[in-house]
Amino acid sequence: MIPPAIQITNLCFNYSDQQNLFTGLNLTVEAGDRFGLFGPNGAGKTSLMSLMTGLLPFHEGSIHLLGNSVERNDKNAKKLFGFVPQDFSFYEELTPKENLEFFGAWSGLGKREIEQRSNELFNILALEPVKNKAVKKFSGGMKRKVNLAIGVIHNPRLLFLDEPTVGVDIETRQEIIAYLKRLNESGTTLIYTSHQLSEAEELCNKIALISNGKIIAFDTLNNLLQEHGKQDLEDLFVHLTGKAYE
């Protein structure tokens, strides 16, 4: 039996200046899902993402990624997932090829694997013509592609995506979404947050809405829309949170 991609049980966490952000949070995301996490600003999306990726230590409860407990600096759990942060997370002085060489090595790949995977990604994401140019000279869309390529260089079974298409043109967004769907079809579970709700509708098959550190809705998009009698995700969001999506 395949363990859930994410299993969060009784998670408790707070910042020193924000008491009880999460008090006994539970969440299960099945392997193979395209899961979208949404909520108003300050609801705890980024914190939850940081807890799941081990960037923040939690106080109580447990988080398992594909059956592996997330503890700080646990190498086994870290090998399973890739992370595509909202901020550009690479060295702008380096070329895409050099960035992939470095982050590939840090992801635990050998030289040959890195070379092979890099060539695949350059072709898929149309980075081949610019693979030897310094990233700092790239447009926002090209940088997003490099950001994504680094996150998937090691073929992760679980991919965390924080606003992966923010600031890119429509064409590049469609390229990225198409690639993410292909990735999911090949078995990678996607954990996604974005402010682009139309994009979320296109990409996600499961949705969770989070507000004040609590999951207030969790199901497939169709079930949620049916249950609440709403037309789209934005209407559903306003209905459940009482806030406009920004």
């Binding site: 960037l55 190498k75 870290k78 992370f83 942060p85 901020d87 840090w106 992801s107």
Partner: peptide
Amino acid sequence: LSGAFIRLRTLPTNYYI
């Protein structure tokens, strides 16, 4: 301060490297 550091911390390699 760069985004690269956040990514480094999620990778299975110790930052001391």
